[in-house]
């Protein structure tokens, strides 16, 4: 029990620090994406560069923070879009039933039948590299599970006697959906959204690492790990380690918070990390 609370506090602290850092640091230290200082390339971590510098002499700490900012933006926006779409589709399918339900769920099956990284790659390939295509790519591939969860929840809520009572009391379809069904599924949908943020961040990194995500000059965690591959072979570990940690630690922290939330929703379901 104490262990769980410690974990929760640590997760909360990390998330708070991350949010603070990505909001404040860019105000104090502007980043010139194009700046190159070959005289200072591949410096070891030290006083002037706590995380060292990369193969063209750029400060890794600053780039990590900027990269994290992009990742968070992609993660949060993509998760929100995916959740809104998934909730809408799932709620419609569950509430309408009949052929509408069948059509919408076949659509979900269709999307699910394609490996989602492949589908994501297909989507980014349609556009010029940038933040929005990456967000679209992650969102398009991640609303499916939310749609399924929400539909199942709506179907189970729909048979509750309190829905019967609302119908008998004269409530319209719209009122039943908005006042009784939607509030019932929102906690689940919200939880799905938070759980999706780490996943979306990893997707952004993976796409950028493959060179398909963000433009290569942009400070992004995936780009940084990608461009550090060469120096890692030469024994320079820091350009890989720090961006890597910046991907892993915040995503674990967000997942930790989401896990605690899930336990609150249903204490019988022990938290498991879904990344």
């Amino acid at each position: 029990m104490g262990n769980r609370i410690t974990r929760l506090r640590a997760s909360g602290l990390v998330v708070a620090a991350v949010v603070l850092a990505v909001l404040v640091v860019p105000l104090a230290f502007p980043l010139d994406e194009q700046a190159v200082d070959l005289a200072a390339k591949l410096r070891q971590p030290g006083l002037s560069h706590p995380f060292g510098t990369d193969e063209v002499g750029r400060d890794l700490l600053l780039r990590c923070v900027y990269g994290l900012r992009v990742s968070l933006l992609v993660g949060v926006v993509a998760a929100l879009v995916a959740t809104v779409v998934g909730t809408a589709v799932g709620a419609l399918a569950g509430a309408l039933g009949g052929w509408a339900d069948r059509a919408l769920m076949r659509l979900v099956d269709l999307f699910s039948s394609v490996p989602h990284l492949l589908l994501g790659i297909f989507v980014v390939a349609l556009f010029r590299p940038g933040v929005w295509p990456v967000i679209a790519s992650v969102a398009v591939t991640h609303w499916l599970s939310t749609a399924r969860i929400v539909r199942a929840e709506v179907l189970s809520l729909r048979t509750r006697p309190y829905i019967d009572a609302a119908v008998s009391g004269g409530a319209s379809r719209w009122r039943v959906a908005v006042r009784h069904l939607l509030p019932g599924v929102l906690p689940q949908a919200g939880l799905a959204a938070v759980l999706m943020i780490p996943h979306a961040i990893w997707h952004e990194s993976a796409l950028s690492f493959l060179g398909l995500g963000l433009p290569t000059h942009q400070a992004s965690l995936g780009n940084m790990v990608n461009s550090a591959r060469g120096s890692l072979l030469a024994g320079d570990w820091w350009p890989t380690l720090f961006p890597g940690l910046f991907i892993i630690v915040p995503t674990l922290a967000v997942a930790g918070l989401a896990g605690a939330w899930r336990e609150r929703l249903d204490p019988r379901r022990r938290s498991e990390l879904t990344l």
């Binding site: 008998s168 009391g169 019932g184």
Partner: peptide, 18 residues
């Protein structure tokens, strides 16, 4: 519809928990 008032067996299932 509203000409009917219904009461069911299980109050827990019949009340919107929120």
């Amino acid at each position: 519809r509203t000409a009917f008032g219904v009461v069911f067996q299980q109050p827990r299932q019949s009340a919107d928990p929120r």
